[in-house]
Computed example of a mutant assay.
Amino acid sequence: MREVLLSVALVCGALPASAQQATCGGSFEAFVAGLRDEAITSGHDAAVVRQFLSGARQDPAVLRRDRGQGIFQTPFIEFSRKLISQDRLDRGRALGQRFDAVFSRIERDFGISRGVLLAFWAFETDYGAVQGDFNTLNALVTLAHDCRRPEIFRPQVFAALELFEQGNFDPATTTGAWAGEIGQVQMLPRDILENGVDGDGDGLVRLKTSAPDALMSAARMLSGLGWRYGEPWLQEVVLPPDIDWSRTGLETTMSVAEWERLGVRARDGALDDARLEASILVPQGRGGPAFIAYPNFRVYFEWNQSFTYVTTAAYFATRLQGAPVYDAGSPVPGLAGDRMQALQRALAARGYDVGAIDGILGAGTRAAVRDMQAKLGLPADGWPTAELLSRL
């Protein structure tokens, strides 16, 4: 599920100007020829490049999947209940014990709790069982040729070429997810080049077949993305009824001590270090569950940009570490589909940057909703409702 965004966005700023300015679209054959010429000009052996790209084909199924990510329109409670089952919890905890030595090493070297990686492992490939059967080269070249996000995927084609030169990628047989991710935790070629770790000590980095390799590599990547050693990421809280709802959301951060002075309490146990900066999240508004998000929570968005996915993954990680099931409360029904798009159009017409009119409640739409609610005298919890749409 890393398809919404992947950490490669961080790489784009370091690309040579020729890669950043490269065109997309047009004849697919001419596009592949352009990739070939650029690779050779960059110093790659011409015969190797031709061998690597000789079988590249456009995959219409990849484009259909790219355009059809409707699951991210699902509200948090429904989404999390779909992804988190007792079976997944049980298997995750069992795998945590089975690979205890690997997770202990990760906790020692990177300060990342095992629940975090177990949750990614579960959501990305169901603990390695479903890794995808799309030809990886075709997926990458197809998405690089497509003009929606070429700046993300074109560099990955050249990273895959480097893996091929190392003997770690077969353009004919390497398969993975539709967006080009490979292995049990779904990493793109550039991520593998920069963060691949031989976790099992066999001298190879095999993210498809070796759980220790995949887990250690994912830990190294998260650490490189800014994970703060030994710190928490998310915790369920109980909010006071008189809280200023406009302070909720990732746009507002205060110290844990300041939140405590406002009456925020942990639902189970105690809040973490009072000096940490944190935000309060109410994924389905004031009537639903509430969480405090610590700095490490923001690192999740370098893995995936969907707020719903990120919150679910972070919450599942806490469950794997013993946290109770969240209190779902009684949230007001939200908007979906055409009505959500109608709200986005209304907000955009008023000058708000909500991104694409796609029916997905992303960060831009949430912020716009919160601001408009405040202007209309409604509780500014960032949750879009029929009342808000009616008022607009």
Score class of each variant (00 low, 15 high):
V116W: 11
R81T: 03
I106P: 07
R36S: 15
A94K: 08
F120V: 10
D109R: 15
R36Y: 13
R36F: 14
D126N: 15
F72M: 01
G43M: 06
A56K: 03
R108C: 00
W121V: 05
Q20N: 06
T136R: 06
G55D: 12
S27E: 12
A22Q: 13
T23V: 09
L10C: 11
C24K: 01
A14R: 15
A39K: 03
D90Y: 00
R64K: 01
A46M: 06
L117K: 06
L35R: 00
G92V: 04
I40G: 04
A61K: 04
D45S: 06
G70R: 06
F52W: 05
G111E: 12
R81M: 08
R108D: 13
F52V: 04
T41N: 06
A101F: 11
C24N: 07
F99G: 02
E78Y: 07
F99C: 04
G92H: 06
G96P: 02
K82C: 10
R50S: 07
G55Y: 05
D126G: 15
E38I: 00
N138K: 05
D87M: 05
S7L: 01
V11D: 15
L53V: 01
L15N: 11
D109H: 08
L89R: 07
T136I: 11
G115Y: 12
A46G: 08
I77V: 11
R93S: 00
R93T: 01
A46T: 11
A19N: 07
R57A: 13
